[in-house]
Nucleic acid binder design. Structure first.
Lengths: 348, 348
DNA sequence: TTGAAAGCGATACCAG
DNA sequence: CTGGTATCGCTTTCAA
């Protein structure tokens, strides 16, 4: 004989024991002897509704006793929106400068009551990753670097993102752009070296994958600075290892360069060391300039010249995100962040 | 006369136009002329159900046309679980070593089909933050550093986390522990300096907030190494700036130290530079040893001695997370990650 | 092979 | 002041 399973709606005969099941607002309601609606009102301090003080206390007590934590997904499903700002987690080793910036940005957005999540993306292609990001229905997406194309932006917006901001070398259709003009970093370096009388100029290009987005524009910037001059530019692949540095230094006299822009301060330190070990004088034989203005550079001897990059203030950027979220219809803004300035020390 | 609003369930008279609303599976179903169930079957390749090829194609076409992206929150709400592994985003400037490790871990967990989310926490207190993490109902939580207490762990578990792992100086009740034994880092350094004949030993303690979790154990390790010997230990507060370094160096002869463990390689570089600028010989007058074995140290002259820290392999750690998730009932494991070894170069 | 419907957890209407 | 209930988007039995 077939039997029928009868499920009593919303009221299991025995409350499921212990840590086996996660407490819900219904559990809190049951324990407090009120309805789920009341629980919701109390825990969210809904001002449109007055709940008596004894009831409030019972609800709070019940919630604490059960260790109740609201379910963010359920809440935002119901609400139709969240306050999640999504950023892809960097998948290349990223400098101290940048991680610091991320931290500050998180803090600043937190002040505005946003929650920042960094999503660990598998593939390097932004437009595919955009799909994974869109599944989380973030209210805003902040994408550093290149890789996100117009269709990625469109996908995110169709999925409810009220603002998409890119932080990178070029504008992307439909997104607010914070142009980090790495080309101008190279340009400043090239102009500086030229002004110092150098004419045969090398540019370090890191061999580590994932840095092309920065190294290419920097190289192009140097090229542009020296176009229509009597100076020449040589591209110098270099991995961040002593061996690679030594190999480059050995070839140095054959290269006949009198100056080098070393991509950043860390590569500059590596190169300076290996040049000095080869008996090549800095800045006498070869001038060296880095970028990023790390503490590191000030500690080297000779002190390292560098191109300092002014990152946008985290608070300003957070405010921009907030404005964009509040007014999604506004046309995408473009901000030029050209804070590249040469800090001339002793190595150039 | 009162009027009644009749809402036709699930079938708005006019499909909402354009990008105003986010397409749902119901929209896909309507466009493809099938039911929502069928859409779900097709898009998830449900093997228990056979769907005719023409239907599949219609569904896929409709999904693509609408730019449909499934709603992760709704899905995991229904499913009752997610594959999200949550980590707090570091809120202190963290070394290159560590960011590299995070990247690899994300990749390794991605291979196991987990999604890693770094949550930007506001307060530094882990137990309060735990509540915010719990709202996201992650399947596992991976917490570096100290700050998460037993009640934080309990809260996360009650909220459905099948595994909580801490990556830090000490065990936490209820969580799997990967003990990063910073005390032994200090111990190795102290023993090394003692063996090299040094007796008046300084230990740099960074003044930057947030690093105490690491600097305290390292200091204690040195103390332990030198207990019951004729050596003395002096605590040296130092901020990561040239001025702070210079101030410390000026006091140096008054301090009468013949060796120093400089917290890590970066602080060691700072200190070495300011000592040398004061005419204090390294290692002649004062031996210096750092930690972390950064490239940086090999490029200094004298080459920097250091304590190398073996981080666990990201793949192993990912596998551990996976095991813990699969078998939440298993008792918490404790893994000692004592990979601290002295790399003796020229500065000590 | 496809469709109808229940329900995951939380919120906000409306009625009592 | 409080409770019932529809709803968000999706998956998954159960029926047809």
């Amino acid at each position: 004989m077939p039997y029928v399973m009868v499920q009593i709606p919303n009221t299991p005969a025995v409350p499921p024991p212990g840590p086996l099941s996660v407490p819900t607002s219904a559990d809190v309601a049951r324990l407090a002897g009120v309805s789920r609606a009341t629980v919701s009102y109390v825990l969210n301090n809904t001002s449109a509704v007055r709940i008596s003080e004894p009831t409030r206390r019972r609800v709070h007590a019940a919630a604490k006793e059960l260790g109740y934590v609201p379910h963010a997904a359920a809440r935002s499903l119901r609400a139709g929106h969240s306050r999640m700002v999504l950023m892809p987690a960097p998948n290349v080793p990223v400098g101290a400068l940048y991680s610091q910036f991320i931290s500050e940005l998180q803090w600043a957005l937190g002040r505005l009551d946003y929650t920042v999540v960094q999503h660990g993306t598998v593939g390097p292609r932004g437009d595919e990753a955009a799909r994974a990001w869109a599944e989380l229905r973030p209210v805003a997406v902040l994408v550093p670097g290149a890789g996100l194309g117009p269709q990625g932006v469109a996908l995110l917006k169709r999925s409810g993102a009220r603002a998409v901001l890119t932080l990178g070398p070029e504008r992307v259709e439909g997104a607010h752009a914070l142009l980090m003009d790495h080309e101008s970093v190279g340009h400043r370096a090239g102009r500086h070296l030229y002004a110092r009388g150098r004419r045969r100029i090398g540019v370090v290009v890191p061999e580590e994958p994932g840095l092309e987005a920065y190294s290419r524009p920097r190289l192009e910037g140097v090229r542009r600075a020296l176009r229509d001059t009597d100076a020449t530019v040589a591209e110098l692949p270099l991995a961040y290892s002593e061996e690679s540095g030594a190999r480059l230094a050995e070839r140095w006299s054959a290269l006949g360069l009198d100056a080098v822009f070393a991509y950043n301060d860390e590569y500059a330190m590596l190169l300076m060391r290996t040049l000095q070990d080869q008996g090549i004088g800095v800045p006498g034989d070869t001038a060296v300039i880095g970028a990023d203005d790390l503490m590191l550079g000030r500690l080297l001897r000779p002190r390292l010249s560098t191109v300092r990059i002014e990152l946008p203030s985290a608070r300003d950027l957070a405010a921009l995100v907030d404005r964009a979220v509040r007014d999604p219809a506004a046309p995408p803004e473009t901000h030029e962040l050209l804070g590249a300035t040469v800090v001339h020390r002793d190595s150039s």
